[in-house]
């Protein structure tokens, strides 16, 4: 199948599931950080465990990638600023009650504040590109 259409399909499934489990719900995300609701810890934890088991099984396939290519799994490299970036990201996560994936589901649900979180993320990425001109190591 066409790769773009495939990703449209997988993205739709992802957004649908995020919305069904309440991962796009402000109260569940912020409530998790304050310690009132651990539903999303369950969602993320189950996802990590399922993903880990799935990758183990995939690695046992004769052809882990359908077209016969070798599997390309690469750890993301850290820069000296990565931890700081992660902290900044976390603050945004706790402020908006959204992350780059769940905000898209919020958008689809018609949440107006989610739309502004989304616009903020686009400008935040733009800001990174501007900073990167001055500070190439970022």
């Amino acid at each position: 199948m066409n790769k773009n259409l495939g990703f449209l399909g997988f993205g739709t499934l992802f957004g649908f599931v995020l919305s069904r489990t309440g991962a796009s719900d402000y109260d569940l995300i912020v409530g998790m950080f304050i310690g009132y609701d651990y539903t999303l810890v369950g969602v993320i934890g189950t996802a990590i465990i399922t993903g880990a088991i799935g990758m183990r099984i995939l690695n046992k396939f004769k052809h882990p990638v359908k077209n016969g290519e070798p599997l390309k799994v690469k750890a993301k490299e850290l820069s000296r600023w990565s931890i700081l970036g992660a902290g900044i990201f976390g603050l945004g996560w706790g402020i908006t009650g959204a992350c780059p994936g769940t905000v898209l589901a919020q958008l689809g649900e018609g949440k107006i504040y989610g739309f502004f979180s989304f616009i903020g993320m686009i400008f935040g990425t733009y800001l990174y590109a501007r900073l990167k001109e001055k500070y190439p190591l970022l």
Partner: peptide
């Protein structure tokens, strides 16, 4: 308020090299 939080998310994700899906789910699963 939400725009500002989004700004932090967008900037932070790029400096950190990924977000909840790329790092926390995909990365930890691997």
């Amino acid at each position: 308020y939400f725009f500002s939080g989004g700004l932090l998310l967008g900037l932070g994700a790029r400096i950190a090299g990924g977000c909840t899906s790329g790092h926390s789910i995909h990365g930890i699963a691997n």
